[in-house]
Write a protein that binds this DNA or RNA. Sequence first.
DNA 1: GCTAAAAGTTCCATTATTTGGAACCAAATT
DNA 2: AATTTGGTTCCAAATAATGGAACTTTTAGC
Lengths: 261, 261
Amino acid sequence: MGNARRVRETGTLGKLMGLLDLVALSDYPMRFTDILSLSDQPRGTLHRQLSHLVEEGLLETDRDGRYLPGIRLLSLASRSWARNEFRAIAEPHLRLLQERTGETVHLGVLRGIEVIYLDKVEGRQSVRMYSQIGNASPAYCTGVGKAALSVLDDATIEASHAGLQFHAYTEHTHRGVADLLADIAAIRVRGCAFDREEHESGICCVAAPICSDDGNMLAGVSVTGPAYRVTPEKLEEWAPLVRVAAASIMQDMHSRLGPKR
Amino acid sequence: MGNARRVRETGTLGKLMGLLDLVALSDYPMRFTDILSLSDQPRGTLHRQLSHLVEEGLLETDRDGRYLPGIRLLSLASRSWARNEFRAIAEPHLRLLQERTGETVHLGVLRGIEVIYLDKVEGRQSVRMYSQIGNASPAYCTGVGKAALSVLDDATIEASHAGLQFHAYTEHTHRGVADLLADIAAIRVRGCAFDREEHESGICCVAAPICSDDGNMLAGVSVTGPAYRVTPEKLEEWAPLVRVAAASIMQDMHSRLGPKR
DNA sequence: GCTAAAAGTTCCATTATTTGGAACCAAATT
DNA sequence: AATTTGGTTCCAAATAATGGAACTTTTAGC
């Protein structure tokens, strides 16, 4: 996945986090040599760096000495999630939206050109929550991502996506910035974004943007479901509900976080 | 919360992770000065360390400049969770146990003297999954924790809990190592642990230990519910079911992970 | 089973980063 | 306007990271 070489190096921490990313984003446990070939570091250095990460519980080794992301990450993240005020404020609105539509509702925030899912409310079927929470996806092919981007102006979007390789997840995925900007122009007019199988075949969604009053945080709510249930008509029908949910979240946010500190 | 001063310092990383813990474990956003008074570092140093953590997304600042755990942690954790083989193997057994008992089922691993919850399966009532996943609790007052400890010998348990301040969460919480060891002796005979409102008033559970064949990983499964539904008789009734679940997980683990690599 | 190659680990003089005190700036408070 | 408090920047000194090479262990080939 086209990861632009990190520029801002945060000293020692930056190097170690880059390494952590390398291991955490891989789909399989990595042997020392695998990592060595991907990170251009001398063996001695790499070895000590990995040892430190393991000692801190950020990485773990399996019985064959291969490296995996560590459980310490889970426990740190659970604190981060539990204490996220935005998520807490949004939660009741997500539930309401779920009840009104009967489909899965997502809440995600924009980080650069990625969306990170903060919460998910499913219907009655049993839940594999973590499957989505914390997950990062490209903004350009997700409803939540495009909705959030639509709050920014074209120049900013263009700059952030310049040189990015648009991965063709499906035949409907935008192929470049031009496609994306055209879609986003429509989203601005409509007040909500559609994702018609752009990220995953057979999955559609409607999403509306959320932004904090200081404009520092961009996010989105969406209703998602399988294409056979979530028809184009349904998407249109739910659009106002999603917009209302987004508006309510923003209102709550401004009244609860807004007044000074 | 009696946190013993960290000894093994993993160089720069260790210091920064200590700081991250400090902020992540606090219940509220912390101002620069709050952190300064808790970490015995000079201002200049602390300032740069926090900047680095923020730049890496491990911490964030709110609109008032106060520090919070960052979302990057969530996305790293989601990879860690998604790729945890043990959790994946255990999942079907947790579901089965949930269906048989109708109460909430937990899976947790022992890390030192804490239990970290890896998964949770609830009944039909709507789910706040993350509320438990990733959460760390003391081993001495949780069913899963005591079950996992029971695999170790007394000397090891005594050594790890020496000098630890046992927090009295309820009137039933063990007050010291002696109480704990007596309970654990019974758990070894019985093959499962009970938690009768030791961690939280009104909450009871039965748990059975799980250990990998190399003995490097200790874990536990439990069935938990409110005391008015989960009576002592129910606990006894479910004990065999929980033991069976633990045994099945171990068997699957050994057959899928066991044979060499 | 023996040997060779590959994988993984340790060591230590050199190099780069972190440290911490102090000076500096900015915002609240009197 | 002056003072206190909270936060930021700077730079010589202290500390930790680096990386090449030597060393040990494991794996693969014969």
